[in-house]
Every structure is written in C-alpha cells, then in structure tokens.
Amino acid sequence: MDLQALRWFQAVADGETVTETARRANITQPVVTRTLARLEKEVGAPLLRRSGRRLYPTAAGRLFKEYADTVLARWDDGLRAVSEFVEPDTGMVPLGFMHTFGTWLVPELISGYLQVHPGARFDLRQDADPALIDTLRSGAVDLAVTAPAPAVPGLHWRWLLTEPLLLAVPPGHRLAGRRRVRLTEVADEPFVVLRTGMGLRTIVEEACREAGFAPRIAFEGDEVATLRGLVGAGLGVSLLPTQQPVPPRGFSASAGAGHGEGAVPLISVTNPAPARQIGLAWFADRPLPPASRAFRDHVLRAWPQ
C-alpha cells in the first residue's frame, strides 16, 4: 500500500480537486489520477465518482476512508513518537481547551512548562466542550482542559482546581453594590446562559435547581464574553467564571488578574455557592507520545491534588 496514494485519496475525499491536490504536491494532475486509479484497483472497488469538476467518495470510498484516516493518523503518530523519543524536549503537544480557559489558565500551564522545557511546541485547539471531546476522541489533540468532568467511557480526567462562579448583574442593578448574595435573590430575573449541552450551562441549571427554582432563560450564547456583553447591556443576569483561582505551585500569581475588568459587576454567591471543577482529560487506552506525556505529568505535579 502506497501511503502517498492514501494521502491523495484522503485529500480528494475531503473535498480537494485533483488539480488542487497535484498543485499542492508539486506534480502533474495525471500522476494523481493514475495513482487514485491504482488504489481503486488494489482495493477492488470504485472509491470515487465524478460530479462536475470534483470527485466524491462512493459508499465504498466513505467506508474505506475511515480506515485510511486511521492508518495515516497512526503513521503520523509513529513518526512523531520516534522524533520525540530522539528529541523529547522539542516535541509537539496537541492541546485542546474550552474558550474560557484561553485568557488565563492555558497560558499559565504552557508558560510554566516552557520554563522547564523551553524547546517544546504546542498545537492549540479551542472549542466548546462537546466538540472538544470529539476533537480529543479523533486524536487531533492528545490532552484537553475541560470542565466539568465529561461522562465519556474510556476518558481519564484529573481534577486540577475548583473555580467559583460569580453573579454578573447589569450596571445600576439593585444588587450591584453588594459583595455577597443568595442565589434565590435573582430567582425572578431573566438569565443569560450558554447553549444547552455546554458544561457551564449545566452547572448554572443545577445551581438554580439546588436553590429551588428554574432559571428563566432570556438569551443563549456560545461564549462567556458574549454573556458578559449581554449582561452589560441590561438584558439579564448570569453566573460567570471568576477566571482567577488560587495559583498552583510553580505557576505565577497573575493568572486571571483581569477578570473583574469592565462595566459588569461580579458578586459572590451563597446558598448554594456555584463552582465548576476544572481538569485535564485524555483517553486512558491511547498511549501518549513522550512530549504530551511529559506535559501531562508536569501539570499534574504542579497543581495540588
């Protein structure tokens, strides 16, 4: 089996034209066409069908592509593992994380690691938590910083820290001058929350349920920054991450120092005191390459358990 043929088949099946694939490989279009034809002959079934200028995978092609993707991913993993075995301190760490960790937690994790391994490199992927687990499952990232602990079979999750959630209210709100409130004091207020299925949305709903009410949802958003903006415009209240936990051993005290900036007052909440559990996740049955394993071990040593 020709790995180059698999890569060209993968590219075309993913939507590239044969011309684009040939140009990227710096070869002629007929070479790609003949190589794909040989691959079909070797597999024993038509893998691609033409429609206009493009080729699309047949039913057999879609089936075959799943295995081709796996073969190529494992081959690339093997090359990377050998490279990192020879030079572990310069290896690549594919790291996924939720959007809300991009301004404080992930930079601290990386900067702390680079103090020990200055030659390390990172491939960073941001996403909402449901898609983040899919990215982790596909092998696009080796590790993911997520909250709360995902209920996914085979996924190993280690707690790093507990991050309190604060009540965000519009400027001039009746509670804006308070340092602490009970959650029931906003039971009749409109809430601004993330979309259903996101971890923070689940935590907010559970906290309200524990306080004895169901939140009246006024607006839904995809990012915490959007929620903050909606609250600032007077469109509701929200429970938002502090983005400023106590820093762990070996990391600077500047993490999240700017969480209170802006015009939206943030107030501590009691009865209950909502919080989210943040941790590092990886699939236990998938061996981590040396660089990713070294980063994981460094983080777990640095953060108190």
Rank of each mutant, 00 (worst) to 15 (best):
E206H: 15
C208K: 03
C208W: 04
C208F: 08
R209I: 00
E210L: 14
E210F: 10
G212S: 09
G212F: 12
F213Y: 14
F213M: 07
A214H: 11
A214N: 05
P215A: 04
R216Y: 00
I217R: 05
E220L: 11
E220F: 01
G221Q: 10
E223M: 09
E223L: 13
V224L: 06
T226N: 13
L227I: 12
G229Y: 02
G229K: 09
L230G: 03
L230K: 07
L235A: 08
V237S: 04
V237A: 07
S238A: 15
S238Y: 03
L239V: 02
L240P: 00
P241M: 12
T242M: 14
Q243A: 15
Q243E: 15
Q244C: 14
P245D: 08
P245Q: 09
P247Q: 09
P248Q: 07
P248E: 03
F251S: 06
S252W: 04
S252E: 10
S254M: 12
S254W: 11
S254D: 14
S254H: 11
A255I: 14
A255F: 10
G256V: 04
G258E: 07
H259G: 12
G260C: 10
E261T: 01
I267N: 06
T270H: 06
N271M: 11
N271G: 11
A273M: 10
A273W: 11
Q277I: 13
